[in-house]
Design a protein around this nucleic acid. Structure first.
Lengths: 335, 335
DNA sequence: GACCTCCAGGAAAACGATTTCCCAGTCTGC
DNA sequence: GCAGACTGGGAAATCGTTTTCCTGGAGGTC
């Protein structure tokens, strides 16, 4: 293992000079020495020991990214946007997958803290559980106190810089658009009861229906994934339009209806939420609420990397992202 | 920032004892001291400084994972399988995305080397370019010499432990199955000319057709993604069956045909490769060659984590993974 | 030419852990 | 009762950098 000292010796300079040449320093080094050091480093095949560098500098060049599930295109898109930004800043990204287990999420923050990562990005939707939230807050505080930075995508319940998608407003807009198509009897495949993202979308949707004086939708809870949508769809009884609170669930619902010979949008209309791009070639094309996921990931990463301005550090920065209703083939005009 | 020394002082023990209690050691520590240390650590909110630990131990608990594109479900599935294994061994995973740029891939190996990661997992298909391969080899050698471990998914061209999918055999099997349906005139949406995975699949497919005494397929090159499939499909002239060398391209091709009013499988049959699970609810359901992607990622990670056995370290371990032809709705029986 | 300011270079002290010794007890067996 | 193993505890060296001083010489000003 070749160290900086080896390089310095071979180049006939001090450790300090070698360090200054090889790992960016404000101090100047004379051209001839500089050349010698670079040559020596190249000849010996020197690679900085980042652990030592991190220890000495007191700051790493790693960012932590916590997602629920990489195979869920929602998180993949978010992660992709975030990673592009990190890469453009020459940061490495350490990824943790929680598989939707809040305990693991907390554990990851702890581990990332131990790694002294520069910033942590939490992309998973929060859950309505005061105990968990409190413990997460506590873990985050530990990290923040030692100079860490945290940003979040989803709900602002953690009191950190957050990119907040317009779940309520988007779902409300979708409800109005669907009502505009003539639908009156709705069902909502609402996902897990305590998941805030799911809950907000349901609330926005139901709220808008109420405002329009329409009957409350049938609500079917279930898991937040494709199979959750598939299962929940079988319980829909008497609706002309089904809103799945995310696209992946909508896909499950479509499959379920197809299996049972129910035509979409002939017999029932289906809408989702997120506008996952991998699903854009689905048949029928899915009516949904588009979120700029990659962009949201990128903005969250920017938040995490940008220290809060001069003002009081008390207020977390909140960036709202609007969803855009996109009507496609899976929902039809009634009557 | 609370250090181990703070903990030791608060607990009234030496640094050595505190270290032994908090960060797994073979040495025993008396129960009373142990309790004191644990209490102190808890009270002070101590978090190990992993950088210092890595430096002292000379080995990190981080694994490097290099993928082309997280939003491509192929890599997402691979990464997911790999990460599960890493997590089960309590390793953290540092992910790099190359966006299909071989230079970036090499740069990542270098960076991960600097991080002194325990192992590096390369999941991207190799490209036929002697210069690039040589430089990658060189970079890997540097890393291997210092005790690093490397595993790869794809082609065995790097001479490291590799999980090799049966691209040739799978594509050949597919060709035979499609010929068995009565197809005679084929087109292959063949992806980039120099990408080995694409090339192998094309070769396997064309080879099997030749063996059957069928005419050579029309070959259309293009990019390896959805849009590549879409574009390439427009150039297909006179075929009853189109083989896209991966599922994502097949989706593009389906969309292209649909746009032009060409019915699948009525007018033309379409097949892909990989069996991406996100696409299982596509209409029409895609005929493809199934690869156990998550499992492949997991096995590659196992390879990376398991030191080669006692024998000569000369031979890289190769694990072959067979693809399984799955005929679905997108291909029909002719005549 | 004296004085002051820069500036490039080096010696050495951090950074925060792990681990090798060394030491003083305590057991064991006879 | 004593040699010899075994035990748990601590002092201090070590890992590979960065960075703070310190120093001597070069260049500028009056």
């Amino acid at each position: 293992m070749v160290t900086l000292e080896d390089v310095a010796r071979q180049a006939g300079v001090s450790l300090a000079t070698a360090s200054r040449v090889l790992n960016g320093s404000t101090r100047q080094v004379g051209a001839s020495l500089r050349a010698k050091v670079e040559l020596a480093a190249h000849q010996l095949g020197y690679r900085t020991n980042v652990a030592a560098q991190t220890l000495a500098r007191g700051a790493s060049n790693v960012i932590g990214l916590v997602v629920h599930d990489l195979t869920d295109p929602y998180f993949a898109a978010l992660a992709d946007g975030a990673m592009r930004v990190a890469e453009s800043h020459e940061f490495m990204v350490m990824v943790g997958t929680t598989h939707r287990d809040p305990e693991r999420e907390i554990a990851y923050v702890s581990t990332l803290n131990a790694q002294r990562v520069r910033a942590v990005l939490l992309t998973g939707s929060r859950v309505d559980d005061a105990g968990l939230t409190r413990r997460m807050r506590q873990e985050l505080d530990r990290y923040l106190q030692t100079g860490g930075r945290v940003a979040c995508v989803g709900q602002e319940s953690l009191g950190v810089d957050t990119v907040v998608p317009g779940n309520r407003e988007g779902a409300a807009g979708l409800a109005r658009a669907l009502a505009g198509l003539g639908h009156r009897r709705f069902a909502v495949l609402a996902g897990p009861e305590r998941l805030l993202t799911a809950r907000d979308r349901l609330a926005g949707f139901a709220g808008a229906l109420a405002e329009l004086g329409l009957p409350a939708p049938q609500v079917v809870h279930g898991s937040f994934d494709r199979d959750g949508g598939h299962t929940a769809a079988t319980e829909v009884s008497d609706a002309t339009c089904v809103f799945a609170v995310n696209d992946v669930m909508a896909v499950g619902a479509l499959a379920s209806f197809r299996d049972r010979g129910v035509s979409v949008p002939g017999d029932v209309s289906v809408a989702g939420f997120d506008d996952i791009s991998t699903l854009r070639d689905l048949v029928p094309q899915l009516t949904t609420v588009r979120l700029p996921l990659a962009d949201m990931g990128a903005r969250a990463m920017e938040l995490a990397l940008t220290p809060p301005g001069d003002g009081a550090d008390a207020d977390p920065r909140i960036e709202a992202v609007a969803g855009e209703v996109v009507l496609r083939e899976s929902t039809r005009r009634l009557g």
